[in-house]
């Protein structure tokens, strides 16, 4: 059974998420997202996923926020919002002449159809959750099949007490290699895109 603290934590996550995407100031959004990640890390510690919590706190809350801040410092701080008449002008001060007479509409097709798609997806997800084993059910297939093998044989075969490390580095070491390559790829991608031309 789940405790009240967990329920509150999870609810707080939803609030953070809503706040992050609805704030107009992107800098605030980023900070809220950072705290969202931190709360997420707490949730994961509550769920006994300490390794994931570490990573989330450092990578999710730390690196992602840094990246976001770096990007924001090179672009714009404010999101362009739909304005009613009489409201304040665009804080970013548009300079492009093509956009002089351009106005954003209140409801666009993407917004409405997006909402429909999202609700549909949510409905399907809820439908799929119906036949899932309950949270924490020790008889669920996910726990009884491969997981049990790891728990029983991990320690003797790999000789590392932390089973996550054992699986990560050994049984599924290849995924970890893939993970490294993903980082490498991202690095190459960022260099490719941001490297400046030599002045000749």
């Amino acid at each position: 059974m789940i405790e009240l603290l967990d329920i509150l934590l999870l609810l707080f996550l939803v609030i953070c998420a809503v706040a992050a995407i609805s704030m107009r100031d992107l800098l605030s959004s980023t900070i809220v997202l950072g705290s969202y990640s931190l709360f997420m890390a707490v949730v994961w510690t509550r769920l006994n996923a300490v390794d994931v919590a570490f990573t989330e706190a450092s990578v999710g809350a730390g690196i992602t926020t840094m990246l976001m801040l770096a990007a924001l410092s090179r672009t714009k701080r404010f999101e362009f919002l739909y304005r009613k008449k009489g409201q304040q002008e665009d804080p970013n001060k548009e300079t492009n002449p093509l956009l002089k007479n351009w106005k954003r509409k209140r409801f666009s097709v993407t917004k409405v159809s997006g909402l429909i798609v999202v609700l549909l997806t949510g409905a399907i997800l809820i439908y799929g959750t119906m036949d899932m084993p309950d949270f924490g059910d020790p008889n669920s297939p996910s726990y009884t099949h491969v997981a049990t093998m790891y728990i029983e044989r991990g320690q003797p075969e790999v000789n590392v007490p932390n089973l996550v490390t054992a699986v990560l580095a050994s049984y599924r070491g290849y995924d970890t290699l893939g993970e490294t390559i993903v980082i490498f790829t991202a690095g190459i991608g960022v260099i490719l895109m941001l490297r400046k031309r030599k002045k000749t």
């Binding site: 399907i124 997800l125 799929g128 959750t129 119906m130 036949d131 491969v146």
Partner: peptide, 26 residues
């Protein structure tokens, strides 16, 4: 969640019993 495995062959063997589960269909 439905099968407890990630290997494709293993999945193929374990899935047929639970084909009508909403989780698998989703």
């Amino acid at each position: 969640i439905a099968t407890g495995t990630l290997n494709m062959n293993d999945l193929m063997q374990r899935l047929p019993e639970i084909y009508d589960s909403t989780t698998v269909i989703t």
